[in-house]
């Protein structure tokens, strides 16, 4: 029974959250019509032994989507960050690369 430390609400039992899988995947640009890239995003998931980045939504709390790093062997939660921050950070990184 996992406990997830929501950055907004504090530590909560996992039953308050919706699990939504792999958070390492990145949604293609909406204008991208490449079926393979969308297929990758929608259907294919890594199944690592060890650290796994995954989405959880605090549905019965602040409703924020969270990016959780969890060890799939020990179930230890290593970090919890708001997905929106991770997303904005990724956008900034992209700009820098460009």
């Amino acid at each position: 029974m996992l406990r997830i430390a929501c950055p907004y609400c504090g530590e909560r039992d996992y039953i308050e959250f919706l699990y939504a899988g792999d958070a390492a995947r990145e949604m293609p640009a909406l204008s991208d019509t490449d079926i393979d890239r969308w297929t990758d995003f929608v259907f294919f998931r890594d199944d690592p032994k060890g650290e796994h980045a995954e989405y959880w939504q605090h549905q019965h709390g602040c409703r924020q989507w969270l990016k959780v790093i969890r060890d799939t062997v020990t179930h230890r939660v290593i970090s919890v960050t708001p997905a929106i921050e991770a997303g904005l950070q990724a956008d900034e990184d992209k700009v820098e690369v460009a």
């Binding site: 939504a20 958070a23 949604m27 989405y55 939504q57 409703r63 924020q64 989507w65 708001p82 997905a83 929106i84 991770a86 997303g87 904005l88 956008d91």
Partner: peptide, 11 residues
Amino acid sequence: LEFLLQTAWPD
């Protein structure tokens, strides 16, 4: 909708 706004299109 929340997923899209918070993960894909935070801008």
